[in-house]
Write a protein that binds this DNA or RNA. Structure first.
Lengths: 167, 167
DNA sequence: CAATTCTTTCAATTATTATTGAAAGTTTTG
DNA sequence: CAAAACTTTCAATAATAATTGAAAGAATTG
């Protein structure tokens, strides 16, 4: 396969995969484009390569910057903003985890906490419900705790020591 | 909060959360309903409680059975099929992980493998691309391997031993 | 075996989400 | 400070995904 074909296919692949996981297809495609680009690109470049509108390109580049997956760069004598992606895949994984935790897991825990207090007389029904909610709270907290630990561990420790531990 | 209110809110919460993660809102709501129901429910019950159509209820119940999150039950003297959810949250987590692995991670790995072979003369561009793809392959494989390990570990080992290891 | 009861399918519709692109906003330049 | 160059916004539109419900299909019953 030609390099350019491969890059294009990767952009499609990443877009499809992202949209299965609740990430906007264009955002994932912009990310894939910048991830496989050796030089930083301006909005115009992104628009042209992906055949998307200025608004779409701008919005998704900004969103990728909010996720700390893309940085802004400027060059002397050029007024345009250029963008470059974080290339370290371990960093990418850590940052995505961190953001989803902040945006989704923490609010979920908040909501579950509210649901764990139920009024009314004790009953089997009530016990069953509060039991399920607290099981979910424990599960979420523990998976969350694991993600914290993994994010603090560096790649070497993670890929070396820990996996061996389970072998 | 009243028990019935809390259940309804939980159904909404689970539906919203699911749709953020690429799971159909109705499917997540049916799951939440069955998860917090002490008795098994028939299609009619699900339709009425969630105010959804017969087709929608049927399709999502079937899909939840495909995911091994819901079982079919029958009662003598009643021709209808009744449904009951797996209640063990650790089992639920394992089964969701297993299905997403099979449906998404494995095809992703397949696609990445295809992209890792690039024709044409060696170049810095090409090296960069194949490097990024193989980094991604390693990341995906390792996260996947971790999920295997976690699925094999039982709840006690997971929640006890391993977390301590990182403390 | 035909009537009944329940389940499944799927084309049409509705709802949701993403995208466009022109206009407004901002920054830089001479 | 006004023109130029670039960025951002957002109402309108388009694309995608979910839902409906009537009809067809299966299974069960008497």
């Amino acid at each position: 396969m030609e390099l350019e074909t491969a890059k294009q296919q990767f952009i499609q692949l990443w877009g499809n995969f992202g949209s299965q996981w609740g990430i906007n297809r264009s955002m994932a495609q912009v990310h894939a484009l910048l991830l496989t680009s050796t030089k930083s690109l301006c909005t115009e470049d992104v628009m042209e390569t992906l055949s998307i509108s200025r608004g779409n390109a701008n919005m998704n580049i900004r969103e990728l910057m909010n996720w700390n997956l893309v940085y802004k760069e400027t060059f002397p004598g050029d007024r345009r903003e250029y963008f470059r992606a974080e290339k370290d895949v371990w960093e990418i994984a850590k940052r995505i985890t961190k953001e989803r935790k902040r945006r989704e897991i923490e609010p979920l825990q908040q909501h579950l906490a509210e649901l764990s207090v139920v009024d009314g007389p004790d009953s089997e029904e009530k016990e069953a419900f509060t039991g399920t909610i607290s099981d979910l709270q424990r599960l979420v907290s523990r998976l969350d705790g694991l993600s914290d630990t993994l994010m603090k561990a560096d790649e070497h420790v993670f890929f070396g020591k820990i996996v061996q531990f389970f072998k």
